[in-house]
Design a binder for these strands. Structure first.
Length: 968
RNA sequence: GCCGACUUAGCUCAGUGGUAGAGCACUCGCUUCACACGCGAUAGGCCACAAGUUCGAAUCUUGUAGUCGGCACCA
């Protein structure tokens, strides 16, 4: 068999994904078991404009690992994929393109033409991200791919809007909103990021009190502000009602400079007397706090800015048309000229910025659509408080953050001044009356006229994303009672046979609620909370049980990746360099929820691991003639166990004579690993599973098991064959024909079978490599499939995930094998420390008690080979020349006579070093065991354990000291 | 201002009320017939600091310092 020496992932990645997809392995319909339990997960829809980044790669890896694992366990799985329309960023991108290509703006071409452009753009570039998802190897069901702007989902959004409006949860109102003057749209609180502004200043402005006698005395009230330009829109000055300094001024008036307007001095508890001067200018149309004061005092709302943050006519002729910062300078200049500028102080302010374009947000009085959140909020809080749902992984700190955010939730601004998105289904007649309806026809009926104009705004993208887990599964809010107490029966005991793809209602019944959501921290409020709220409101069910919050992938210096810093790491480049599987292992190998700095070295180590798996398999395949994967070959433990259960006295006899210690040991390790991996995945400890598999495969399987059985397995040369037959070994019928003995065939079968199971366990993490290798193994096929997939073509994707068989755990084998491993390691240590060359021949003397003598004798060939020794002398005691290197293990004393080779000085210091190390531990043990309160209060098992360890070490120290003395 | 997380080997990170672990890097030795993306053997840590609880603390509590994050306020 021709197999390359180094694994090259590229071809496998391309080839297998196509096959998986075209054979329908990803679709839940592949599962033929009518009683199969379901497992479902929806992808957090990436932006249609987006490209894959490490955060995606991480969350996708975790979701796919879970899905593949569950699928192999026989669950009917659905991993639902799709993208969202990303209102603002897509519109920006297409606008930019339009400007570049045609030197035109959206306004130039009009709404319909522009929307058409966006669709064109989407059809051309919108599959970049989905192609990248294919590259990642995600086992998502492409037949159910969704897009938030497609017809069905748009209808759903409209239905939801109408329903919420009719119930009174959506209203239109004039409020101060976060206005981005560059994007010219409103933003929700969550799309705004507070950032420290540079060069912040606090300007102290003198406002003259306007009554005649005050003017005569030039009575001034000084206010402090960071935004002097807004004074043009002031409609009051406020002081604290308890502030003795200003009590006499309340109720009087200010003659507002530069405007010739008179504004009142009012008292409001909002004002803190200690801050600034204790007097606050009030600009209700340009500041959220001022707006609230304005509401309380019935102040005039004077809007002085345009949508692009230039001053409008209301700001006065001198200022009209000025950009806001130019206006600020001019206001300050004018105040200075008038002698009304008291002082300017440096002052650190944090200002809201548009998350997307970084422009400073302008709080602006504006008419928008809002969603009242109280009812849905209360439902979500109840679910959390009473059922601890959804469960967050890790729970700290996300549960608390989520709860606190819900508790302080305010109304949600859902309209956006964009053209790309779900246009708000509201129509206005000539008098401005609003009619919310599913269609213009319906609105016309309500209005009694067809002379209607639809609201120009669209809905926040998150409005549609909030419906994602159920809208994508066919819920559209139109069915009878669909929105009442929940569409679904509490328990759906009727399993869906094979759900036709088109029958999306069955999808809802089968796959909703989903099992788990995997997403990033910053999305908890934007998306997770909203899905919970809408899920409860519209379906009566929580949309998912568990929420895994993954960590942030940082750059190698621990910095967040960002476009501005240009320190992003492109997953596609990493794939190209190290392979998708190695990248997935790296990502899954990071602790759940913890940020981690990206290191190429880490991926490299998993690339090496992939190569190790490749080569271990290569070795097994080179030596696989006459054998194939056969699960029965591992079952001798079961025979032994059942015979033990029947009361046989020596169940060990049931073990076939050729089941070696190493066989029993590796099978025990395999089953323990399967158990631990299962537990790790159940609790979403992906990194734990990765560690377990890495350790099992590399250390246990490759370093020890393969090395132990190598001589048995490799093809014998003709000369060796003849020698063996002459020696009476392996001269059995058929042996000459194949060149193999039955024992060899059995060994080959066994190693293939163990390898095959290890590869299956690795599949959810490393899908491509494992499929590539599994296809090459003889004896794999649909017989290894989970029975639910019996008709499917051969693929590891649908093979059964290995389960732990407790009867195969063999503690005796593990401790015996450990003794052998320790023995070999100690001899190797002597070899290395004493500079024994490969070619040097030496004998190893071993003294041990009877049971371990047997163990060592039984494994003599392997010990000789792995320690590179020529001969073993095993007995109760040993007699060796003075010129010997010595060592002790927990079960044996070792001596290697090195006449002429030994460096006594070196050997002395080597032994002294070992004694030193043991003594440190011994001192600690002695101290602990002589502590009366420890012996009295600690659990007896613990005390015994330490006593045993103490005896063992004392013995070892004693032996080593004797050996050391003998050198002198 | 409030809340939270983190601080473990040179680096990146696991882990745990009872002998400190991994990967990478380092040192030494191997052209051993699956793999040099390899094999073998070492070395390396008072688990940030201080106090407390406990027979026992790196692990639990409290405080301190540093790093990072979230929220609130910001005239």
């Amino acid at each position: 068999m021709e197999i390359a020496k180094v694994y090259d992932p590229k071809e496998a990645e391309e080839h297998h994904y196509k096959r998986w997809e075209s054979n329908g392995f990803f679709a839940p319909e592949i599962n033929e078991d009518p009683d199969a339990e379901k497992f479902s997960v929806v992808i957090p829809p990436p932006n249609v404009t987006g490209t894959l980044h490490m955060g995606h790669a991480l969350q996708h890896t975790l979701m796919d690992t879970l899905t593949r694992w569950k699928r192999m366990q026989g669950y009917r799985t659905l991993f639902l994929v799709g993208v969202d329309h990303a209102g603002i960023s897509t519109q920006l991108m297409v606008t930019r393109q339009l400007k570049k290509d045609e030197h035109r703006s959206p306004q130039d071409i009009g709404r319909d033409a522009f929307t058409e452009k966006v669709w064109e753009w989407k059809n051309k570039y919108g599959n970049v991200i989905t192609e990248q998802i294919r590259k990642e190897g995600l086992s998502v069901d492409w037949t159910r791919e969704r897009f938030t702007m497609e017809d069905d989902l748009s209808t759903t959004v409209r239905n939801v809007f109408v329903r919420l409006y009719e119930e009174g949860w959506i209203y239109r109102g004039t409020r101060i909103v976060n206005w981005c003057p560059r994007d010219k749209t409103v933003l929700s609180d969550l799309e705004v990021k507070e950032e420290k502004a540079r060069d912040g200043k606090l300007y102290y402005l003198r406002y003259p009190v306007s009554e005649p006698e005050a003017v005569a005395t030039r009575l001034m009230l000084t206010v402090a502000t960071t935004r002097p330009e807004t004074m043009l829109g002031d409609t009051a000055v406020a002081v604290n009602p308890d502030d003795e300094r200003y009590k006499h001024l309340v109720g009087r008036k200010i003659l507002l400079p530069l405007t010739n307007r008179e504004i009142p001095i009012i008292a409001d508890a909002y004002v803190e007397s200690e801050f600034g001067t204790g007097a606050v200018k009030i600009t209700p149309a340009h500041d959220p706090n001022d707006w609230e004061i304005g509401q309380r005092h019935n102040l005039e709302m004077l809007v002085i800015m345009n949508e692009d943050a230039t001053m409008n006519a209301a700001a006065g002729a001198d200022f009209e048309g000025l950009e806001r910062y130019a206006a600020r300078e001019k206001v300050v200049e004018e105040f200075e000229k008038l002698g009304l500028l008291d002082k300017i102080e440096d002052y650190d302010v944090t200002l809201p910025h548009c998350e997307r374009c970084k422009t400073v947000i302008e709080p602006l009085l504006s008419e928008q659509w809002f969603a009242k959140m109280d009812e849905m909020r209360d439902m979500a809080l109840k679910l959390l408080r009473e059922e601890n749902a959804p469960r967050f992984f890790p729970e700290v700190p996300h549960k608390k953050v989520y709860m606190m955010w819900l508790e302080n939730l305010r109304d949600w601004t859902i309209s956006r001044q964009l053209w790309w998105g779900h246009q708000i289904p509201a129509w206005y007649d000539k008098d401005g009356n609003v009619f919310v309806a599913h269609s213009k026809e319906e609105a016309s009926e309500k209005a009694g006229t067809t002379d209607l104009v639809q609201d120009q705004d669209v809905l926040d993208t998150w409005f549609s994303s909030a419906l994602w887990p159920f809208s994508t599964m066919g819920w559209n809010g139109s069915g009878p009672g669909a929105m009442a107490t929940g569409l679904l029966a509490a328990e759906n005991k009727n399993p869906v046979a094979i759900a036709p793809v088109s029958d999306s209602t069955s999808d809802l019944e089968t796959f909703y609620p989903t099992d788990v959501l995997v997403t990033g921290r910053d999305i908890i409020r934007l998306w997770v909370s909203r899905m919970v709220m809408t899920g409860l409101k519209f379906t009566g069910k929580k949309p998912f049980d568990d929420v895994i919050i993954h960590g942030t992938v940082l750059d190698k210096n621990g910095q967040r990746m960002s476009k501005t810093k240009n320190n992003g790491i492109d997953p596609l480049e990493v794939f190209a360099k190290f392979g998708v599987d190695a990248t997935r292992m790296t990502l899954a190998g990071s602790a759940t929820g913890i940020d981690f700095a990206w290191r190429d070295e880490k991926v490299e180590s998993y690339r090496n691991f992939a190569n190790k798996i490749w080569n271990a398999t290569r070795f097994c395949l080179i030596n696989s003639d006459g054998a194939c994967v056969d699960l029965k070959s591992l079952e001798f433990h079961l025979q032994a166990a059942s015979e033990a259960a029947l009361g046989r006295e020596e169940p060990a006899e049931a073990v076939p004579p050729n089941a070696s210690l190493a066989d029993r040991w590796i099978i025990s390790r395999l089953n323990k690993t399967a158990k631990a991996v299962d537990h790790a995945l159940e609790t979403y400890q992906f990194h734990e599973a990765v560690q377990l598999l890495y350790h099992f495969f590399w250390d246990d399987f490759c370093d020890w098991y393969i090395e132990f059985v190598k001589d048995e397995i490799v093809n014998l040369s003709d000369a060796e064959m003849v020698r063996d037959i002459e020696a009476g070994i392996g001269s059995v019928p058929g042996a000459v024909a194949t060149g193999l003995t039955p024992a060899q065939i059995q060994s080959r079968t066994r190693i293939l079978t163990i390898l095959e199971q290890a590869i299956r366990m690795l599949h959810p993490f490393m899908p491509f490599l494992t499929e590539e290798l599994w296809q090459k193994l003889p004896g794999t096929g649909s017989s290894l499939h989970n029975p639910a997939y019996r008709s499917a073509e051969k693929t590891i994707m649908l093979a059964d995930f290995p389960k732990c068989n407790e009867a195969m755990i063999d503690e005796a084998a593990e401790s015996e094998m450990n003794a052998v491993i320790e023995l070999i390691t100690k001899v190797r240590n002597i070899r290395a420390e004493m500079n024994i060359k490969s070619a040097d021949k030496f004998t190893v003397h071993i003294a041990a008690d009877g049971a371990f003598q047997q163990v060592f004798k039984a494994n003599e060939p392997q010990i000789l080979k792995l320690a590179k020794a020529e001969k073993l002398v095993i007995g109760e005691k040993m007699e060796v020349p003075k010129a010997s290197a010595k060592a002790v293990t927990a079960n044996a004393e070792i001596a290697v006579p090195l006449e002429g080779l030994i460096d006594f000085e070196k050997e002395r210091s080597r032994l002294a070093g070992q004694i030193e190390k043991l003594n440190i531990e011994l001192h600690r043990l002695n101290a602990q065991l002589s502590n009366v309160s420890f012996v009295e209060k600690a659990p007896p098992e613990k005390v015994n354990e330490l006593r045993e360890r103490q005896t063992e070490i004392e013995q070892q120290v004693k032996t080593l000291n004797t050996n050391l003395d003998a050198l002198n």
